[in-house]
Each structure stands twice: as structure tokens, then as C-alpha cells.
Design a protein around this nucleic acid. Structure first.
Lengths: 222, 222
DNA sequence: GCGTTCATCTAACTAATATTAGGTTTGTCA
DNA sequence: TGACAAACCTAATATTAGTTAGATGAACGC
């Protein structure tokens, strides 16, 4: 039986396999990516993968863990670099930028995680859930801290904000194609999303247009 | 060879198969759901499915098409019912509510579509793309109309707003479990998301907290 | 020079899957 | 009563996937 050693220090080949697996998982999904696909991308034969990994599940587990580690690290590092006294709005915008950067720019691991997490065998999902939860806890704390500083409207459901904000970002994996030239830069996306979530899109300074004023006047009368 | 007729009018069995397929696709994904799973859920044998459908791809195609038809219909009907002169904010909130309702409450077809669309064979995806694009065009028009009425802040990237808003909603399939009692009602989610996107979460009336004022003062000096 | 370990290979195996061929039951209608 | 079709069945097939066994060759210390 192949011993399949599990070196904590990644050999070049192991790293190559994970890189290619992450790229393929992100692009085509988990079940749709065969070990043959991964091996081909690495220039080797399917069976050779088993020298570095004990199973496909071990590969995907490593990819998923690296994926969340990447975002978590990117987000925490960038926000922490702002210093403790930074404005709440700046902290949130920085966190948004970091999450999107990890997801769309840095590598394929985070994108793969977001894309296939819900399509992976249950025990694999369970094994990688803890780290994912810790990252979400970090967001929970970030928002709670922002609220504690009085920067968020009272009565706001912070859990819903977190879920929706992360959802809006995570879904970008589905439509963002960096292949198309420089379509939209990640920084621009982050700014736009920040504007939307933090400030809202409605123009509350402008008077309601004519049609509405007419309608409201009618409503008052009848 | 089995002729596998394709009745436009769905027989009860055909309907049952699609219902169960939608439920399973939504819950476990496309590749992770075998024809055996579907047949078992319907109380029949795998081969019997071929009396109603020519292939697994035909089943998933039907599920995907029904899914987008469901949201599209729900969204358009509810918004149209508001009348042409309705306030832009009400139209957007209604659209958000309808999308979420189709996705999380009405049936499993829309949820299945959102969940597996990116994991389905390319030609199946291509075959169901047109209807999906039409629905997204409807949102594009809705937002453009809102902006044309002057209700949206000038300079807002409407494409980004559409992608992020739909993303936030679509991602809810990943976390919303209606199994857990009445965890959060869809109406509450819709209201919370509407508040966030339309009005923003930042409290722009309140003065910045002490820490920030101190920091800004320091920044002015040094 | 020689044995050992690393990294990969060829070849085979097993289980599962979508699909097909053809039979059986059941109800309807002439 | 008997033809017929609808709706399902049993049984078999082809393909593919993940996985395993064992061989090959290069690199390297002794």
C-alpha cells in the first residue's frame, strides 16, 4: 500500500497539484473535476496523485482549508493594519476590499471554497466548517464593533447584514470573469459595494418626482 | 427503443419526477444526485424515468427552465400589480420580496436553478441561459427606470447594484434553512435587505464617536 | 558500485452511473 | 373478449470514476 506521507511542509509537486485542483474546482466544480483532469493539468498520470494525497477528498479538504485561510488572513491583516482607532467606515470598506481581493484576485483557493463548499461530501464539509465559522465570527465581531461605536443605524439586524454582505461578495465568483480584459477592477467593485451597503442607493435628498407627488396627493385625498 | 414522448402538458408522474428532482438538486447538487436518488424519491425504479424523460439532462433542463420561469413570473406579476405610478422604492422592495419568495418559499425549482446552474453541462447551461438573461434584463430595466425617475443617487453603477443585489439574494439559498422552525421569515429578510441596499446601514446623522474625534484631531495636528 | 528513497509510471480492479432492451401489469375501449 | 397503449418493471451494458499493486528510473549517501 502506498504510505502517502502527509508533509506539513508542501513539496513543489504537492503545491502544484493543489494549485491546479483549486483552479479546476473553481472553474468546473468538484464532482465535475476528475482526478484525471487534475493529473493532466499537472503533466502527470492519475495514479501519481496518490503519492502525494491519500484520496480526492484529501485534496479537496486541503484546497478548502487553504481557501478560507487566504481570505481570513487577507481580511484580518488589512483591517488590523488600519490601527485600533480607525474610522468604522474605513474598517468595513477595507474588509470588503480584502474579501473580494482574496476571492477574485489573489489565487483560486478562496474562489474554489466558495464555489464548491456546498457540493462536497458532508464529512469533508464538516471537517472544513470550523475554520469557515471562525472567519464568519470575525465578521460578526467587526460589525458588532462598528455598531458599538454608534456608526450603524439603531435597529439594524447585524446578522442579516453580514449574511447579505458576504452573499453579495461571494456571488461575484459566479459572474466575475477576469478573463475579459480588465472588465471591472476589484477595487472598483469594492468601492461600489461599499457605497451601496453603507450609504444606500436611494437619493434621499432629491424631492420625489412629479408622478409620485401626484400619486401621494391623490392618496391623501382619497 | 423507448420513444420517450415529451408532452407539453405534464402528466402527474412527470410532475412528480420534476418536483423530486428539483428538491434533490437543490439540496445536494446536480452531479451528487443520481437518477437512482430521484427514482427512489418517486417510489419507482431508475429505468422508469426514461419513460418520461430521454435523459438526465432533459430532466435538469426542465427543472432549470421552470425555476427561472417561477421567479420571473412572481417578480413581474407583483411589481406590475403595483401600477405604473407606484413609488420607485416600493417597486424595488416588491421585486426583492418576490425574488426571495420564489427562491426560498414557493417551491424548489428556483433554488435548484440558482444552486446548480454553474455546475451543469455547458450545453444545458447554454440552453437555459436565454430565459435567465431575460429575467436579468427585467431587473436591469427596473433599476434603469428607478434611476430615470431620479430616485437613485447620481453616479451609481447600476450594473454593479444589480449584480450585488441579486447576489445577496441568491446566496441566501446557501444559508437559509426553512427547516428550523420559522427561523427568519422571508418577509423579514426582504425588509432587512431593502433597508440595507436602499438606505444604507451607516448612521449618518450621529456624530462620530469619541475615539474617532480624538484621532482626527491628532491627524489635523500632526 | 550499491542500496535506498523519491517520484512517477503501467496496468488492473471495483463500484457506481447513465442508458438501453425487452418484458409485465393495468386499464380502456371497440 | 381481446387489442392496445400507458406506465412501470427486470436485467443487462458501457463507460467512467476513484483507487490499488507493483514496476521503473533518477538521485544520492556510504
Amino acid at each position: 500500500m502506498n504510505a502517502a506521507p502527509q508533509p506539513a511542509l508542501p513539496s513543489p509537486s504537492r503545491r502544484l497539484v493543489l494549485d491546479q485542483a483549486a483552479r479546476l474546482f473553481r472553474g468546473q466544480g468538484y464532482a465535475e473535476t476528475s482526478l484525471r483532469d487534475i493529473a493532466d493539468a499537472c503533466g502527470m498520470k492519475t495514479a501519481s496523485l496518490y503519492y502525494h494525497f491519500a484520496s480526492k477528498e484529501e485534496i479537496v479538504t486541503a484546497v478548502l482549508n487553504t481557501g478560507v485561510a487566504t481570505v481570513y488572513d487577507e481580511a484580518r491583516r488589512n483591517v488590523d493594519a488600519l490601527g485600533a482607532g480607525a474610522a468604522p467606515e474605513a474598517r468595513l470598506r477595507t474588509a470588503i476590499g480584502a474579501h473580494l481581493r482574496a476571492l477574485l484576485e489573489l489565487d483560486d483557493y478562496t474562489g474554489a471554497n466558495i464555489r464548491i463548499f456546498g457540493h462536497v461530501p458532508p464529512h469533508v464539509r464538516a471537517a472544513t466548517m470550523a475554520e469557515r465559522d471562525r472567519y464568519e465570527d470575525w465578521w460578526r465581531d467587526l460589525l458588532a464593533d462598528t455598531a458599538a461605536r454608534g456608526a450603524i443605524k439603531p435597529g439594524t439586524d447585524l446578522r442579516l447584514v453580514r449574511l447579505m454582505l458576504l452573499g453579495a461578495m461571494n456571488w461575484s465568483v459566479e459572474w466575475h470573469r477576469l478573463r475579459r480584459g480588465k472588465a471591472d477592477s476589484v477595487a472598483a467593485i469594492a468601492r461600489g459595494l461599499g457605497d451601496m451597503v453603507l450609504l444606500g442607493i436611494l437619493d434621499q435628498t432629491a424631492p420625489p418626482p412629479v408622478a409620485d407627488r401626484v400619486r401621494r396627493a391623490a392618496a391623501r385625498k382619497g
